[in-house]
Design a protein around this nucleic acid. Structure first.
Lengths: 217, 217
DNA sequence: GCATATTTGTCCGTATGTATA
DNA sequence: CTATACATACGGACAAATATG
């Protein structure tokens, strides 16, 4: 309606429903129900489904419909394996003249700070995504950007499983800030090492939550 | 109809048209023309467009339609940058017990050999794609597999620009075979180094063709 | 295992808005 | 600036596949 396609708008809605837990992992997402709730045609809903399936936020099973992915600890490991390859690699490849291109990272850090002050943890999570996407964008590779967009989208899916988001999101604020400080000083090698251990900790925390959940279930 | 969706079948057709040059880079791909030529509905064509756009074989511009990507030397560099990160990394991470899991690679090498004997260069190209996809599959990462599928699809797009495919495809046959030999012996570090230089040469050859083309155009 | 109801996959016709000649 | 072409979106329809009782 306003700007962009309605299919994209429907996609945004669905994306929120997923990250807010209104749509739980494993849930079936019916074409007709979404179409009637958002008052759009079924065709448009199908278009939105494709967009989200593209980012891994929905899975499409032929003749059965679309579902919210049932993420497991294996997915956590896979996502973090790729993050550990990509993100420190990008930081390590930076040089002194990149210290002037960190504006978007600063913005993301500021966004996270104000959100944390307001105890708005979902927004802290969004800011964290912005930070890491901006970080990867420094590499200047369009294809890497697409891949990182996918990964951060799936990250939201993983975080959505966690009951208490604060416990996971809060550490990000400080650590992103510290990583940025290292990078501003041009200490990229140190930054990459810092990022590696930071990602390792993050993976460990999420993994623990998942394995606990998988044990009880 | 037969197996899978008709949208997928339409996607296969379009994919062939692109790699065969029937659809040239920069061409607009009209919904209605494809729908009438393949005798399917516009709706189905739109679904197929999304599928191919997902793999980078088509680009979608809002309110303007879909186009065959206008690939440039910058795209060559970007694709190879990612290949150089991913593929040698996978090989380096392998261990002795992976030497028994190289069956798909052997099959791809054999496929390339027989195709080369028949001077069927497009088929050699396909076999080469299979080889590198199988290689990355050894890492056991579903998300890396998806990414590699995208990259190889785009690779076909790059190769489609080259006039004489034999010149580019022929070296692959021998080099894939030699890489496989190293891997079979468990010499993964050497294999990774070999792959790096091999990819570097490949990039250089394609890049030269692109820069020549961009100079004349 | 069967009959039924639901839902998806596909198609068509039409209206509206956007881009471009 | 107007006119044309085309993409976006709608709503209804039907067959086929799936899920349900």
């Amino acid at each position: 309606m306003s700007q962009g396609s309605t299919a994209r708008a429907v996609g945004e809605h669905l994306s929120e429903w997923i990250t807010e837990g209104r749509l739980a992992p494993g849930d079936k997402v019916s074409e007709t129900s979404v179409a009637s709730q958002l008052e759009v045609s079924r065709n448009t809903v199908r278009e939105a489904f494709r967009l989200l399936a593209h980012d891994g936020l929905l899975v499409h099973e032929f003749n059965r419909g679309v579902f919210v992915p049932q993420v497991t600890s294996a997915d956590v490991r896979d996502v973090y394996r790729l993050r550990l390859i990509i993100e420190p690699g990008v930081v390590r490849a930076l040089t002194a003249r990149d210290t002037h291109r960190l504006g978007t990272l600063e913005a993301a850090v500021a966004e996270a700070r104000t959100a944390a002050r307001r105890r708005d943890w979902p927004r802290v999570g969004t800011a964290n995504m912005h930070f890491h996407r901006s970080l990867v964008a420094l590499a200047g590779s369009p294809r890497l950007d697409v891949m990182m967009r996918r990964l951060t989208a799936e990250l939201r899916l993983l975080f959505a499983v966690i009951d208490d988001p604060r416990y996971l999101y809060q550490p990000f604020v400080k650590r992103n800030k510290e990583l940025l400080a290292l990078m501003t000083k041009g200490r990229f090698e140190e930054g990459a090492d810092y990022l590696e251990s930071y990602l390792g900790d993050s993976e460990g925390a999420i993994l623990a939550a998942f394995e606990e959940r998988e044990r009880t279930a």
